[in-house]
């Protein structure tokens, strides 16, 4: 990969968010399935759910996000 130059904070943030969501959906897959079958799960609930899950990224400082994202594998 050629991205030797530093990623912008925005890139880091969006990469971290997608990683965070990926981890969260993996860890709570079972519970998320149950929520999907709940009575109050309507069309916009999916948006609500994603929004709720990714809030947690706020608990990581920009430096920590960078640290985690930048250890990403260098593979194609």
């Amino acid at each position: 990969m050629s991205d030797n130059k530093q990623k912008s904070q925005q890139e880091i943030s969006s990469e971290f968010t997608s990683y965070y969501l990926q981890r969260a959906t993996k860890e709570f897959a079972e519970d998320l399935d149950k929520v999907r079958t709940a009575d109050d799960f309507k069309n916009d609930a999916i948006h609500l759910l994603v929004n709720a899950l990714q809030q947690g990224t706020a608990l990581f400082s920009p430096e920590e996000q960078r640290r985690i994202v930048e250890t990403a594998p260098e593979r194609k």
Partner: peptide, 18 residues
């Protein structure tokens, strides 16, 4: 309660505390 409403409320409370 594992429901969309509870999660929505938790998210709202998270934002408030934040």
């Amino acid at each position: 309660k594992l429901s969309a409403t509870w999660i929505g409320y938790a998210a709202f409370l998270f934002n408030t505390v934040a």
